[in-house]
Simulated scan of single mutants.
Amino acid sequence: MKKKHLITWDTAFEVGIASIDSQHRTLINYINELAYTIDNRKIKTEVSTLFIKLYEYTKFHFKAEEAYFFTLNENDCLLHQLQHKHFIEELDRLIALNENETCSQEQLYLLTDWLLNHIQEEDLKFLQQHKP
Rank of each mutant, 00 (worst) to 15 (best):
F69S: 02
F69Y: 01
F70A: 12
T71Y: 01
T71V: 00
L72D: 02
N73S: 00
N73P: 03
N73F: 04
E74L: 12
N75A: 11
N75Q: 13
D76P: 01
D76W: 06
D76C: 00
C77E: 03
C77H: 02
C77N: 12
C77A: 14
L78V: 09
L78T: 09
H80C: 06
Q81A: 13
Q81V: 10
Q81T: 11
Q81Y: 10
Q81F: 12
L82V: 14
L82Y: 11
Q83D: 15
Q83V: 12
Q83K: 15
Q83L: 15
H84M: 05
H84K: 02
K85G: 06
K85T: 07
H86F: 15
F87G: 14
I88G: 07
I88K: 04
I88Y: 05
E89M: 12
E89N: 13
E89A: 05
E90W: 05
E90G: 11
E90K: 13
L91S: 03
L91T: 01
D92A: 01
D92F: 06
D92R: 09
D92H: 05
D92V: 04
R93P: 07
L94V: 05
I95M: 12
I95D: 07
I95W: 15
A96L: 11
A96Q: 15
A96N: 12
L97F: 07
L97W: 08
L97K: 09
L97P: 07
L97V: 08
N98E: 14
E99V: 05
N100E: 02
N100W: 00
E101I: 00
E101G: 03
T102S: 09
C103K: 00
S104R: 01
Q105F: 15
Q105P: 12
Q105Y: 15
E106A: 10
L108R: 04
L108S: 05
L108D: 07
L108W: 02
Y109K: 13
Y109G: 12
L110I: 10
L110Y: 13
L110T: 10
L110N: 10
L111A: 04
L111K: 04
T112I: 01
T112W: 09
T112M: 07
T112Y: 04
T112G: 09
T112D: 07
D113F: 04
D113H: 08
D113G: 15
W114H: 05
W114F: 14
L115D: 06
N117L: 10
N117A: 09
H118N: 06
H118K: 08
H118M: 09
I119L: 05
Q120T: 15
E121T: 14
E121F: 09
E121K: 10
E121D: 09
E121G: 04
E122D: 12
E122R: 14
D123N: 06
D123C: 05
D123V: 03
D123K: 06
L124W: 05
L124D: 08
L124P: 03
K125Q: 12
K125G: 07
K125E: 14
